[in-house]
Design a protein around this nucleic acid. Structure first.
Lengths: 193, 193
DNA sequence: GTCTATAATTCGATAGAC
DNA sequence: GTCTATCGAATTATAGAC
């Protein structure tokens, strides 16, 4: 354990694993958990289906590896409080457009209990943690985070999953200008306003 | 064609069809389109699986019949403009709790293209039509309807599908008081506010 | 490490007796 | 109208040759 403490394999067919994960994310994002097949994923990655099993054990194991996700929320305490909503929407839109992992997770969460559990974890832990800086009332804080998640996931659901035309066609910056005030009020406002 | 112009069958085993549809809605709502099987639905309805095929032709045909849905939006022109948001959220929450068809449709829309198409139709037609009473700019009207749909579907997605604890635990009336102002602004406000 | 072959299920759909 | 029997296809997963 001096300098080289690699888990098991120092490095071997690491490119293959990456290709599998990339193909898996595409298929899970496009088709959902049930319709995405190991055979199709392997074909996309141009490898043999049995390799997927060898590397990830099962379809669930593959999904668990492919749906690893970090919201990468910025440090909200460094953001001017009045611009919190704006920063959040813009961050999420950029995060979604640059990485289809969250779309895969979103689609799978509708039918796969494990994916739903992971979704709950991500938003309950990462988002609540980022929001919890403001205010000590944990019940109200969790509620604020839940409301923010409802609008952000609704945005993703209508734009990337159901693909409602107005939500697909509206430019990101206009979506930001509409939705930012909503998050702002959920984060810092009062129920009756 | 004088008084009795029934389509084909006046009435026969109509109770069976109703039992099938009820079981189908439950299964589609709980498991999504792919995981819900005709065999399981038939077992729930206590009939033979082949009866489902006979009555509805195929799994898609069964879903199409089970996911028939009407938002039953009230006449918004009779609502005081300042209370539009409140009326809408309360109506949707009540509609969701009283009929699991929309949950079935929501879950299926994540993975089934046909269900997504139906979802688009419902919100593009019924919601846009109800909103279009205010304002003549069709592009802006569609955008308003899309934003309203994003928050309402996000509410449903987090409360009924992913089941985020804060969104499940919060009483309906408090959800209304938080979300109503959001819809109000989407319906009647301006982007920069 | 890679691939072939196949086991073991499960599902949608069909044919046909009664 | 209702049910039994089954087909044909597709899936995950495994066993084992090379």
């Amino acid at each position: 354990m001096t300098a080289s403490a690699q888990p098991t394999h120092p490095r071997r067919s690491d490119a293959t694993r990456a290709a599998i994960l990339r193909a898996a994310r595409e298929r899970f994002a496009a088709d959902g958990y049930e319709r995405a097949t190991i055979r199709a994923i392997a074909a996309d990655a141009q490898i043999d289906p049995s390799m997927v099993m060898r590397y990830y054990g099962s379809k669930e194991g593959l999904f668990a590896a492919a749906a690893e996700f970090d919201l990468r929320l910025p440090d909200l305490s460094a953001v001017p409080p009045a611009r919190l909503g704006e920063v959040l929407v813009r961050h999420f839109l950029a995060r979604w457009d640059g990485d289809e992992t969250l779309v895969a997770l979103l689609r799978a969460a509708s039918t796969n209990p494990g994916a739903a559990e992971r979704m709950r974890g991500i938003f309950a832990d990462q988002l609540t943690a980022a929001v919890t800086a403001f205010g000590s009332d944990s019940a109200l804080t969790a509620r604020r985070a839940g409301l923010v998640a409802s609008q952000l996931l609704g945005l993703a659901f209508t734009r990337y999953i159901v693909r409602l035309p107005p939500m697909v066609d509206t430019p990101p910056e206009e979506l930001v200008s509409w939705i930012a005030p909503t998050l702002q009020r959920y984060l810092t406002g009062l129920p009756e306003s």
